[in-house]
Design a protein around this nucleic acid. Structure first.
Lengths: 243, 243
DNA sequence: ACCTGGATAGTCGTATACAATAGGTCAATG
DNA sequence: CATTGACCTATTGTATACGACTATCCAGGT
């Protein structure tokens, strides 16, 4: 099975590219897989075999397991006890919870963000929004989705509250997953001009307006989803046992 | 249900106490360590050697590492690259962030909680508050802290939003850590009657009042802390390099 | 007496080997 | 022809062995 030539016992060919420090490497692998999921290159339900990943990234299964666990805690992958890892397929309820959470946290953060935002931040945000728009217009949905998530994450980071910013980042990642399952192709989540308008409000220091706008923005995304709980193929038995 | 005897060759003496299924065992170990940290039986800064934990719980280091990683992601323990694991010592900034986050989320959840709370929930909450009070009066600080965290977590769970409830639970755990570092002994975080009052508001369906009360409650806890950033023992060198 | 350099030991990081289990496939029977 | 049973393969879960790095301790020099 292991078709690796394995010339030297402890130094696969792929590894010499990076420095020996494994921490950064693991971080890179994590981001790599994470990005692939967020960009929908790995679709919900896709199985993530440890051996395959280990071979692709040139590390042992041990390291992959660590990363997979972390992804599981971030709820991007689901770890079923002896079936292995697969990209999480969010339920309709989870989708609702995620958007409710975003509604509460992202909107609640807006006043503070408006207070602390710097011209540097504004420039950065404009650049991100611009790139997102370009990606959208050139049909690169994958990049657009990721850029949109990055936009929201960066925005939350301006608040200065790392705890909440990290939470928002995870919510955005999960949102991307939700879009992959319940989103209609063609009608992407975020309208590009929305982000530009939001930046304008913040640049003018209108925190209240920005908050209300973000609320509508998130509601619009959620409304664009077609959340239909697909029926289990064999619910009858469960119903019988439940009764 | 599977009562397989499983006299397998690899069965240390400690392991036969539990069922062979490792998943539940790991969950139990996780909770065990987590509780010890939350109850201040393990104080911030305490080192957590893998070998020692492995021996204590009768599993191999592999399993311990998995649990340690999970605890690290929950920010209860800090994993320094080659120094090992230790109980996290929150910084003053983290403390502020955590309480700001709790302010936003827990208060924001109150209206929904007031809407969905059942008589069963109320009974459960009253019981928890009562036990907390008893623990407080009998001087069992450890139990009181944990019960207080449980109270807030259970409360958040009533909202029905698992994502936010989990977040609150983690914030409460971290709060316990913060109390261990910055709290004054004798003046515990939550006043016991506060929780009882809060239940009353919720029982009467007064979501707004409950929200305001929770806000004051959290502010009171935060105010009771004596957040003094302890000086680094050798800041001079860093200052020199920073200038 | 203090500082610096080296040696040692302890601990973590990684890889590999073994064991158990779940799912799939094939065949046999009603 | 469908269904069920058993076998078999593939994949994960666990443990252990080895290697690398860091911290501590001690000796020597200034």
């Amino acid at each position: 099975m292991n078709q690796r030539v394995k010339a030297s016992p402890a130094t696969p060919a792929l590894r010499q590219g990076k420095n020996g420090d494994g921490a950064e490497r693991h971080e890179a692998i994590h981001r790599s897989i994470s990005d692939a999921i967020i960009e929908h290159r790995l679709k919900p339900g896709a199985r993530l075999r440890e051996d395959a990943l280990a071979e692709v990234f040139g590390v042992s299964r041990t390291g992959i397991r660590k990363i997979l666990q972390r992804l599981a805690l971030e709820q991007l992958v689901t770890l079923t006890p002896r079936r292995g890892a697969s990209v999480t397929r969010p339920t309709a309820e989870e989708a609702k919870d995620v958007f409710d959470a975003r509604q509460m946290v992202e909107c609640g953060l807006m006043p503070e963000i408006a207070r602390r935002i710097t011209s540097n931040d504004i420039a950065k945000l404009r650049d991100m929004a611009q790139r997102e728009r370009e990606a959208l217009q050139s049909g690169e949905q994958s990049s657009a989705i990721r850029l949109s998530a990055d936009f929201h994450s960066y925005l939350a980071g301006i608040s200065g509250n790392r705890t909440l910013a990290d939470f928002v980042e995870r919510l955005c990642s999960r949102s991307s997953l939700i879009l992959a399952v319940y989103g209609n192709t063609g009608h992407l989540g975020c309208e590009s001009h929305d982000h530009q308008d939001l930046i304008n409000y913040l640049a003018e220091g209108k925190g209240e307006r920005a908050q209300a706008f973000m609320s509508r923005h998130l509601k619009a995304i959620e409304a664009s989803l077609s959340i239909v709980e697909e029926e289990n193929e064999a619910p009858d038995l469960f119903d019988i046992f439940a009764s």
